[in-house]
Amino acid sequence: MGKRHESIGIKQVIRFEWMQKTVNLLLAGLDAKKIRQELHEFLADKKGNGSKGERSDQTRTFAVNNLMKIWVSPESELMPLRDASLSFMRENSSMALAVHWGMISAVYPFWFNVARQTGRLLALQEQVTQMQIIGRMKEQYGDRQTVSRYAKYVLRSFVAWGVLKDSKTKGCYEKAPVLCITDGNQAILMLESALMAAPEAKGILRLLLNNPAFFPFRFPEIAGDFVSRHNSRIEVVRYGLDEELLKLRD
């Protein structure tokens, strides 16, 4: 699982409607080759900032590759999560944003980690700055120019998805209203995505439910027994008086 956790992967803004288009093509039964072709046509005149205009072949290809890797052809270890997420999406289209968040977090842990740093700061203050978040990301990934540039793309993606709002000050963000997750099965899928995003592939249930990377959402109360009954890919280990550890099965 190491390579996925060390790489950044997201080299431009990924808009929510692009993710939705990809899933709709997948649900329509198109094969990977046809989906790739359709996405190239769909993105031919769509830019990351939401405006219309001609894009270079390179930037369009980067976006298509991201979308394909998230939903159409993720790594083999992510396929069970992808299939379960797709099945859930088929029956619960109104909760698409949360499902997309889970998949992109699992495939690109860099997204999850930008979200985690953003959520941590928002728990302490009303507004966060781009530079605060980037500073924390450099502590984790190293002081590389690419970290700064690509973290900005993820933050702009958050704004495009509507989970962050631009403040009156440039490079400063405010939290948007949270989305309540009421379906326990969806909550478990998102917990699984968090385990996939973690190099150690495990975490304490209580902390996962309150992980700052899920700052746009509010989860229901979930017990380890419920997780065990509804997801065979996650093992629940109890220790201490009331702690429950979740870990991905080998």
Rank of each mutant, 00 (worst) to 15 (best):
K3G: 07
V99Y: 02
A106P: 06
K69W: 00
G119S: 14
N211L: 09
D242M: 08
V159Y: 06
S51I: 05
G48Y: 10
V114R: 08
S167E: 06
Q140I: 13
H100C: 03
Q125Y: 06
R238V: 12
Q127I: 04
A115V: 09
T146G: 03
W161P: 06
S85H: 01
S105Y: 04
P199L: 07
F158D: 04
I104S: 03
S94G: 03
P80C: 06
F62D: 04
L245F: 10
S157G: 08
S76P: 02
W18G: 02
S56A: 11
I181W: 01
M103P: 01
I70V: 15
V128P: 06
G9D: 14
E77W: 08
E54V: 15
K170P: 01
T22I: 12
L207H: 15
M89A: 08
Q58E: 12
P216F: 08
E174M: 12
G119W: 15
W71H: 12
S7T: 09
M131K: 15
G9N: 04
E41T: 05
E75W: 09
D225V: 13
A115Q: 14
T22V: 12
S51L: 08
V64H: 03
T129L: 11
M137R: 03
E54Y: 09
Q127H: 06
I204R: 12
A32D: 11
E139V: 03
S7F: 07
R90A: 11
G53R: 06
I104G: 02
L67Q: 05
V23F: 15
A160L: 07
V99T: 14
V227W: 15
A84P: 01
L241K: 10
I188M: 11
L205Q: 12
G171T: 04
L205T: 07
I10T: 08
P74S: 08
W18C: 00
S94Q: 00
Q125L: 04
F42C: 04
S73V: 07
E75M: 09
Q140Y: 11
Q37W: 05
P216Q: 11
R218Y: 01
N231Q: 14
Q58H: 10
L155H: 02
S193A: 10
L155F: 05
M131P: 03
Y153T: 13
A198S: 11
S51A: 06
R249D: 07
A106T: 13
Q186M: 13
N66V: 07
L155K: 01
M68I: 13
M196N: 09
